[in-house]
């Protein structure tokens, strides 16, 4: 290809991503150091030029505020905890599903895989909304249980942490199944046969051969569930109620309700730092997949 051609093929997506993916983060970083003010835009400038004097106002107050007000620390901790346990649940449910699909013959396999993915092609919001009607106090489960006389009083399920776990596992399960399946399906059968021929019982073959060889799929699946879950807004908002504290919801409220852009920016920066390690982890795996 001509030099110019090569350059422009690289340049167009590169510039787009720099402009609309990287630069925005730098701006968030910048605004996290400014102060809130009642104006348009609602934050102060970091650098001002007045009377031939250049002033740089770096306001570290927002970060001090995040540390001092324990709301934020609690929100970060509970987000990580909820995302972590939801990821473990999704893995425990998703792995056997992926395994069973990979064991099926080719035609069944594709049909099953399509059935796993189909819900995620419909609206995320609507699938979460479906659970509201099921979990409510006068919802399907409570009405059913009262109807058969197991309970007299409805069990509070909506607006609890349990509902948030359920929502995350439900919404993100396909993203756990898909990478594990992709990995398991490539597994060389002769390795399993060799292990069986050498007298290894099936459960041991699974633990010592299948599981370690599907590590890459497990990591990808876990990252695809964990990282977005930490910052999840829709699920805690709709299923978690006022009691569930999650950082995505805090950020949303700082921005839309309090209109405090610097605090929202600082919340985003700290969240990003927290997710840097898992994102790098995911990136390494993806880069190998994309470039190999």
């Amino acid at each position: 290809m001509s030099k110019l051609g090569v350059r422009s093929v690289i340049a167009v997506p590169y510039i787009w991503l720099l402009m609309f993916f990287l630069v925005p983060f730098l701006i968030v970083f910048k605004i996290s150091f400014s102060e809130m003010q009642y104006a348009i835009p609602p934050y102060t400038d970091l650098v001002t030029w007045a009377d031939e004097v250049l002033t740089i106002n770096l306001n570290l107050g927002t970060y001090a505020y995040l540390i001092n007000d324990d709301l934020y620390i609690r929100a970060y901790m509970s987000s990580v905890r909820i995302a972590f346990f939801a990821t473990v649940c999704a893995l425990l449910i998703g792995y056997p599903i992926a395994y069973a699909i990979a064991r099926a013959d080719t035609a069944t396999r594709n049909a099953l895989l399509m059935l796993v993915m189909l819900p995620s092609w419909t609206s995320f919001l609507i699938r979460i909304y479906a659970w509201v009607g099921i979990l409510k106090n006068n919802g399907l489960i409570n009405n059913g249980l009262i109807g058969i006389g197991i309970i007299d009083e409805p069990i509070a399920m909506l607006n609890t942490e349990f509902a948030v776990y359920l929502g995350i596992v439900y919404a993100y399960l396909p993203f756990m199944v898909l990478p594990i399946y992709t990995n398991l399906v490539k597994l060389d059968n002769s390795l399993l046969e060799a292990s069986a021929d050498l007298g290894c019982p099936p459960w041991k073959t699974f633990l010592t051969v299948t599981l370690p060889l599907s590590k890459a799929g497990i990591i990808a699946g876990c990252m695809l569930v964990f990282i977005p879950s930490v910052g999840e807004f829709v699920i805690p908002e709709m299923l978690g109620g006022a009691e569930t504290l999650m950082i995505g919801k805090v950020l949303w409220q700082e921005f839309f309700n309090n209109r405090d852009w610097p605090v929202a920016s600082a919340v985003a920066i700290v969240m990003l730092l927290l997710l840097l390690v898992p994102i790098t982890f995911f990136h390494r795996y993806q880069a190998r997949e994309l470039e190999s």
Binding site: L17, L251, A268, F282, A287
Partner: peptide, 17 residues
């Protein structure tokens, strides 16, 4: 490649803000 893979997992509130 980082800029291609990061949006796949980036929490939406961060991207939006």
């Amino acid at each position: 490649t980082s800029m291609i893979t990061a949006p796949l997992v980036m929490p939406e509130v961060i991207t939006g803000l």
